[in-house]
Design a protein around this nucleic acid. Sequence first.
RNA 1: GCAGCCGUAGCUCAGUUGGAUAGAGCGCCUGACUGUGGAUCAGGAGGCCGGUGGUUCAAGUCCACCCGGCUGUACCA
Length: 542
Amino acid sequence: MKRPIPKLYRGFRDIFAEDLMMRREMIEAIRAVYERYGFSPLETPAIEYVDILGKFLPESETPEGGIFAFLNENDEWIALRYDLTAPLSRVVAQYKDLQRPFRRYQFGPVWRLEKPGVGRYREFYQFDFDTVGTGSLIADAEACCIGCDALEAVGISRGQYIMKVNSRKVLNGVLEKIGLIEWDARKQIIIDKKLPRCQTTAPDSNASDNTVNCGGLTADKPVSYFDVLRTIDKLDRVGMVGVRELLTKGRKDPSGDYMPGLNLDADAVNTIENYLTCRVESRSQTCDLLAEIVGDSQVGVEGIAELREIDEFLRALGYDEDRVIFDPTVARGLAYYTGPVFEATLIQQSIGRTLLSDNQSTNQTGVSDLPSDYPTGSVFGGGRYDNLVERFTGQKVPATGGSIGVDRLLSALKYLRRGKDRNSIVQVLVTVMDKRRLTEYQLIAQELRTAGINTEIYLGGGGIGRQLKYADKCGIPLVVIAGEDEFVRNEVEIKDLQLGMKLAEEVEERNEWLKDRPAQFAISRDKLVESVSETLAGYSLV
RNA sequence: GCAGCCGUAGCUCAGUUGGAUAGAGCGCCUGACUGUGGAUCAGGAGGCCGGUGGUUCAAGUCCACCCGGCUGUACCA
């Protein structure tokens, strides 16, 4: 008979108490910020119909890749949600009597069928807030403020993160300028003009099939708006030189993969480069520079006006350039964004390398390795998406919102707090010295529990040494000890393991260690709760 | 998807040019210590050497395929 092998499906993980406690604390802090801005909670199911998620391939009966999709008992395609925004637009479309603007927040897992990487999982958590039903740019400015406030609320201090804001409209303005798209102001939509592209093949490629490993880019396909966006999005990875190559002749990356270029002309590439590098510290000056690049493009002009308005709102509230900057390189993928977009990243220096000197493993060269969960990328992102609900109702419903990448933020926080004592959800362990007195031990525990103290009775085997070891390994700070002697005197012993651990550093002889019974004291039985509470109060709870 | 690297104990890894019962450190368990964590010491458990097929007198070691993992790249609503 075959036994099942205990193992996890790729990209999924078990999360234990330590991380869960930290996450819960973090979520609470963020929730408080969201609620302070007037957002209410919402919960939607994990599973939706695939067409609600908008994930059918064009002209196809089966869902696109990237999501966990299944056929249900009625042969309908259903799937695990891949974000919290699509379900939100379903809710808004479905419950027509919701008061708008509808403001809600939602925390929960989402699932994506992608290759897992460092800090990337197939099941991960998002914490979103959205305002649906207003075009007011205050909502966008507010979203940036909320992002900042939330990061600071969980302990990322000012200067350790930066909120970067851009506008899809400005980006579109640039693309219009180079002739890739046309803006229909009346319908507020983009007409993708798709530039023709010459045959370009990898210089040393002998393969006849150029569609392999080009991410949907083929040599003879026309260049679309999305291709350029995608390329811009790669700036932080391949650098300006790489972007230039990808926009023109193509690029071979260090692994040897060749990616065909977009074959844009020199003017277009120069315009894009100008655009990507035009940022200056002042937000309003950045707008001035953007205005020069965008020229008479109507979307571009519109986008800049929006940015200026956001700048004004932010300025009024004291969110200056030390926290929020305008950054033309922010593209936010290909998402549904239609206006302002924003993302917050952690400043690597403050959170990464400089903190790694002590406890990290070293590789063969003796150089300190970055830990496997080293935080990269953005921890918060969002933007305006004015036509997501339209899919359901045909009506434009303006919306904007943001999302915190809970897992990434958590791993960053683990860094900042690393080195702190491990703590357990259990505050007191009641040891069992005399099995005939079990009832007494239960009463002790009960008393502590009634007082709101998390208490565990030791239920394993072994003597007192074993029990203390257990408490120690589990990170339980306090132990209550009572045996025959104590019962006779109507006392209990309280042992402070955390304090004891500190004292132990100076003790070498075991006899000495035993004799002193460090950090242990007897109290009368009726002072139990009082005394335990006092000792626990000595610990910082964070 | 594509490319490169790697699979030996719970973890990190040794394992000679193919050669007998498969090794270490850490961790885990039991004890020394009368009713006390840490330290120290002694002992113990734990391996289809990722799988299958081949080459060979002989395979952890060589070859092929498969599976799994890591890294880069692509996709990422």
